Simulated scan of single mutants.
Amino acid sequence: MAGTTSFVKKLGNSVKKVSDHKSSSWWYNHHMRAASRAVSHRIPLVDFVLEVRDARIPVSSEYGHLRYFPSSSRNIIILNKMDLASHSKTKEWMAYFKEQNYISYAINSHNKDNVKEFLNFLQAKVRDLRRSMHLSDTHTTTVMLVGIPNVGKSAFANSLHQIGRVTAAEKGKLKQAKVSPHPGETKDITSLKIASHPNVYIFDTPGVLPPEIVDVERSSKLALTGAIADSLFDQTELAQYFLSILNLSHEYKKWGKFSELDKENQILNDHTQDLVVQAVRRALFEEIFAFKGNLEDENDMVQLIEAQFTTLRKVLNVNSDSFDAANSIVASKLVNLYRTGRLGHYTLDSLPSTYY
């Protein structure tokens, strides 16, 4: 979309500078290099590989190292964080993967029923494998989770583990994978039991990015969804990119029928409170609705985003002597609201034009 181009380039180039800086302590550091080697070594040894992707970016969050291994019915694409993506777009992406002969499954790793359904699906696959290969009852099935940072592998592994405990003896001995909202926190391969009779174990692996990302659009999407550490670039660039997406979407139109807010009960210092979220939505809606420019024109888009930042500083009660510092605070809050789904559900990757 033309109105987002300048923001994509600006953010994508910032990410590229980080990836080009080989001395960076975060980007493809020794932990990622070691993890990449360990995962590549183990993939041929496990029974199933679950490639966890972010449902908001089904292609941009691809785990590139799997390209070095042949596609197999034992490889399953997990579209995690489906609750943050467009429901209709997720269905379209799953249909696309099916047409490409990939098995895919949409997941919200925090939804117990959804995870239980997937575990039943996986156990059916395990039974099929055992029958086709004439495996003994004592054979332990192994499943490996792979993916880029912050797609929710550890949260998914923990959910499978908790739901998969089936005997009283296993309860109370819960071994959890480390979960963090920050990318790159998992450093080692962790084994968790997710089923008994027969035994099924899942390996949670560290997130690994490619050594270099040259596509600025993909870089921007990875940054916005949190696959790359926020500390590596300006939060304002992230928020500007998100607002350019919001302004060209239909999500904001859902916010036009809000009743007058009870401002006396607003907790202005906590941007996650429902009343404040509603105030943010209302403010963004009114700015877009009142804007008379052409949002496909980048200069007009910049003008609208500047107006939105001015309004949000007031709505979020952000006071600072520094203009840049105030904008940075607003940006951080705005990005958090986007990432937690409070400002709508967006799928950033578009299906190939040849698919339609």
Rank of each mutant, 00 (worst) to 15 (best):
N299H: 12
Q266W: 12
L312E: 02
S244Y: 10
A331C: 12
F323G: 00
N294I: 08
A223D: 08
T236R: 04
Q273T: 15
D234E: 10
A326L: 05
V280K: 04
L268N: 01
V302F: 09
T310S: 13
S328P: 01
E217P: 08
A279D: 01
I329S: 02
E260F: 14
S219C: 15
F242Y: 04
S244C: 11
N327K: 02
S244L: 08
D297L: 09
D270Q: 13
D321M: 13
F258H: 05
S332W: 04
I228K: 06
V277A: 09
G293F: 02
L232S: 06
F285D: 01
A290T: 00
Q235K: 07
Y252R: 01
N317F: 13
V277S: 06
Y241I: 06
S244G: 07
T311P: 03
E217N: 14
Q308W: 06
E237H: 05
R282P: 00
V302T: 02
K254L: 11
V318Y: 03
A290M: 00
A326P: 05
E237D: 11
L222V: 13
T236I: 10
H271C: 09
V277F: 12
E287V: 02
L246Q: 04
Q235C: 02
A279F: 04
I228Y: 13
L275Y: 10
A239G: 02
A283I: 03
V277H: 07
S328V: 06
N294C: 05
L248T: 13
T272C: 07
R281P: 00
T225D: 07
E217D: 14
A223H: 08
L222D: 04
L284T: 05
D300T: 09
H250I: 06
T225C: 15
K263L: 15
L243R: 00
A239M: 11
K253D: 00
I305A: 08
D270Y: 12
L248W: 08
N294Q: 08
A307V: 03
Q235H: 05
K221S: 11
Q278K: 13
L261R: 14
S332F: 10
E264T: 10
F285L: 09
A239L: 08
T272F: 13
E298D: 15
A325M: 11
F242V: 01
H250M: 04
I228T: 09
N319M: 09
V276H: 01
R282F: 00
E287A: 06
L304M: 11
S220G: 12
I288H: 04
L246F: 13
E286T: 05
G226M: 13
V280Q: 03
L312K: 01
Q266N: 07
L268C: 01
E251T: 11
L248S: 12
I305C: 07
S219V: 13
F258E: 02
H271S: 01
R218C: 07
K292Q: 12
E264Y: 05
R282N: 03
L243W: 02
E298V: 15
K263W: 15
G256E: 03
A227H: 11
A325Y: 13
S220W: 07
S328Q: 14
F242P: 01
T272Y: 14
D300M: 10
R282H: 01
M301G: 01
D324W: 05
N247V: 00
F289D: 06
R281I: 03
L268V: 07
Q308L: 02
A223F: 12
Q303L: 12
Q240E: 08
Q278A: 10
L284V: 12
A229N: 15
G256R: 02
